[in-house]
């Protein structure tokens, strides 16, 4: 099981790392300037000049994909950061005050946010402020907060029943200090695994939002928008719909495999046996 966990982790890390590397590389180099139009070269199939072909304006698809990776990954990473920054302290707090009003409010608040899927939050924000990549980040980030709060709380609650927490209390430590010193390091594994999962969900959600026009706006390329643009031309230029989709699938697949591998590797139940 451990061996398989490690293999899964590596395959996942390589896939996700590849797209991350492309995103970073796009800052210094792309095969063509991603927005450069060349009508004479429109709808080129993949070939030596344009590896993944060109779109209806003769723009290089590979270059757009690289810059699109940047958008997707940035949105998902920031959304995970928002979720962790908001959710982890709330989860720790709720667990430390189990059964109190604070705990109840944090939990019910989380339930309430869960009633607003990311796209609904995005719709609300967009209807007032207009569409932008920032909306996507906010919408996904807000949805991530209760996710991390729940995971943290659940992990922390099981730790709070352990005797070393009682020992720390006997040593006169306050709940906040115990939460930071004892609880947080021991829920870190859970958070890393959940972080990878939310990262991949973030990429999917960003793609969905920019596909319906609630995310990144032109001229910023994004995978979801490339797909939306390709839809009317699918009958005669299917490659335009294939490549951005594959990029999403492979990135998300990589992140999920990484998450599974990490879970196998970090799960204390599996570790105790070794």
């Amino acid at each position: 099981m451990r061996g398989r966990g490690r293999a899964t982790l590596w395959i996942g890390a390589c896939l996700a790392g590849f797209f991350l590397a492309l995103a970073i590389l796009s800052y210094v180099w792309t095969p063509y300037p991603y927005a450069a139009m060349d009508i004479a070269q429109k709808f080129r199939p993949p070939g030596p000049l344009h590896w993944l072909g060109t779109d209806q304006f003769g723009r290089d698809v590979a270059s757009q994909l690289m810059v699109g990776a940047r958008t997707s990954i940035a949105v998902a990473v920031v959304a995970v950061a928002i979720g962790m920054a908001g959710g982890v302290p709330l989860g720790l707090w709720a667990a430390a005050r189990r059964g109190s009003l604070t705990d109840e409010v944090i939990q019910r608040g989380g339930d309430l946010v869960f009633a607003f899927p990311a796209i609904v939050i995005a719709i609300l924000i967009t209807s007032v402020f207009g569409p932008s990549a920032l909306n996507a980040i906010l919408a996904i980030g807000i949805f991530n907060i209760p996710v991390f709060a729940r995971v943290t709380r659940a992990g922390a609650l099981s730790l709070w029943t352990l005797d070393y927490i009682r020992a720390a209390q006997v040593a006169g430590k306050r709940r906040a200090r115990i939460s930071v010193e004892h609880i947080l390091p021991n829920v870190a594994n859970l958070l890393i695994v959940q972080g990878t999962i939310q990262f991949s969900l973030g990429i999917l959600a960003e793609a969905g939002l920019s596909y319906v026009g609630l995310g990144a706006q032109p001229p910023t390329p994004s995978w979801g928008r490339m797909l939306a643009d390709s839809q009317t031309m699918m009958a005669f230029a299917p490659q335009l719909a294939i490549f951005p989709g594959l990029a999403i699938v492979l990135t998300v697949l990589g992140l999920n495999l990484m998450g599974d591998g990490l879970r196998d590797l970090l799960d204390p139940r599996l570790r105790r046996r070794s």
């Binding site: 029943t161 070393y164 020992a167 720390a168 006997v170 040593a171 430590k173």
Partner: peptide, 25 residues
Amino acid sequence: AVFQDPYGSFNPRWTVARLVAEPLH
């Protein structure tokens, strides 16, 4: 105090030195 569970009585991420020293707080 000394508690029952020899497995749950210690933070698994701390060294014994840090565990034993905790009451010095």
